[in-house]
Design a protein around this nucleic acid. Structure first.
Lengths: 278, 278
DNA sequence: TTGACAAATGACCAATCAGTCATTAGTATA
DNA sequence: TATACTAATGACTGATTGGTCATTTGTCAA
């Protein structure tokens, strides 16, 4: 096991018990049987460790669920399989799940909050995709409400799994929640979360990103993308942000270039937002 | 406004923004426009302040909801009124509600955790009383599951109210959740949380109780109960705990005596648990 | 055995924290 | 005005934190 993994596992355990703030780097290194200096050879800071943990386990959790939802063919049992996957993944990574449930809305640094928000949106999309696949047009009025209900179910019942040492029958739980979800999907009629409300809420970053952070994000994206049009568009927009020189029409066109590529939609939104605010 | 109130209001605001740990006493006193010394004239410690805040607002929240549930006569709209009361109370005390949602399962000191657990049980009882009143025997198989669903609904939708600056129509939300709750109550059939499971989970102290504490509890219970069978059973079981002498069958029967009386179920569980661990 | 390099250490630092207490300011009574 | 009292202050303490870095240890090839 690499040193990084050793630290991550030790930290995870302590974080689950005590939370991020209450766990010191000292404690982590003692628990891992290494020195404090050795910690900082593997991670630049405590924040980087926390970030790494969240990335690692969130992606694992999401891919666990996504795989089940994407690969399962019998749509009749899909809801049941979804809940099974979710709860088993929670049980498998119970230390991380505890952190996720406990600290998901705690006051962390800006970067972490937006990261968690991103993952939350990913989960939303998986759930929405599943619901649409099962019920199609039938739930057009209640699909966003259903996402919230499903997440609410998972949240409350997770407490039982994570914080009590009681043997639980996850099969019955999943069956029970699948039944409840189906009931709501088929018979619930009142819309509370409209499409408009849902998108208003999920506007990324909204106002919380600085120009400097955005410039850095663009820089990263330039390295990341392969398409030369995208590279060029990003570079020009970066310059425009630093020193405006291009005509509005050109800027609009460049942003359109980005929007044509799914991986750049988010950054396109951010750039447009930033340029509009100048 | 008394100094205590001034401090509590200042602290509440900062706690809601930053959490308990991240808010220093210094910050609170600066925000309240007083000196650090003055803070410690009103509160013995930061913990005492936190305790006071939770007591004050939890009781307020609970009495808000309880009053509505207890006084409302038209049972047809009771669910709607319940959700209305809950969400309006959340909106009224949004700073406290934020703390409650954020930090309810965070790692705090033992005292706070059990305090919050107590309040959570109070809320459970309000919800359970309401559901029983509306649906009676109809939900005998699903009443504990329904509690969890109702709490799940409130939790997820609270995020919208508390963490996004969007004008929301609480009337529609309450109507929508009342509809959903009614659907689940009338048509959901699968039991996951059995009476036994529910009581196991809500068993206070669970494992944290020593034999000596339990003996004291039994002593109290002996004084408390009237029925002579119960008195005798408790006395015999107490002696058995100190010096085992009875056959397993007799012990089992004595515990059964206790279980027949609702007020003794809890202590029966604790005694059984303790005897099994010997 | 030597020397060169990387891996690992833990004493140390500046910052921050909750909580204390000698001192001062304010106020009421004589 | 003088005295006696409480209310309020903020510099201070000791403990703890995240993070650094001069030093030591371990491990190679020559």
């Amino acid at each position: 096991m690499s040193k990084k993994q050793l630290i991550m596992e030790s930290a995870l355990e302590l974080f689950a018990q005590q939370g991020f703030d209450a766990t010191s780097v000292q404690q982590i290194t003692e628990h891992a049987g290494i020195s404090k200096g050795a910690f900082y050879l593997s991670f630049k800071s405590k924040d980087e460790l926390i970030n790494g943990l969240i990335d690692h386990f969130m992606l694992s959790l999401i891919s666990d669920i996504d795989q089940v939802v994407k690969n399962h063919e019998m749509d009749a049992n899909l809801l049941y399989e979804f809940y099974q996957a979710a709860f088993h993944s929670f049980q498998k990574h119970s230390d991380f799940a505890k952190i996720f449930i406990k600290e998901q809305s705690k006051t962390l640094n800006e970067e972490l909050i937006s990261k968690i928000h991103q993952y939350d949106k990913l989960i939303d999309n998986i759930i929405l995709g599943m619901l649409d696949r099962i019920y199609g047009e039938e739930i057009s009025q209640t699909r966003y409400d259903l996402i919230y209900c499903v997440k609410g179910f998972i949240h409350t019942y997770s407490h039982l799994i994570l914080f009590f040492d009681v043997p639980l029958d996850l099969h019955t739980l999943s069956r029970s929640l699948a039944e409840k979800t189906a009931l709501l999907a088929k018979h619930s009629e009142t819309t509370f979360i409209t499409e408009e409300l849902y998108h208003t809420i999920n506007e990324p970053f909204h106002m919380h990103i600085t120009k400097e952070q955005l410039l850095e994000l663009i820089e990263q994206k330039i390295e990341e993308v392969e398409d030369s049009t995208l590279k060029e568009s990003l570079t020009l927009l970066k310059l425009q942000m630093i020193e405006p020189s291009l005509s509005p029409a050109i800027v609009k066109g460049l942003i359109l270039n980005l929007n044509n590529h799914p991986a750049c939609k988010q950054i396109a939104y951010l750039i447009q937002d930033s340029l509009n605010n100048d």
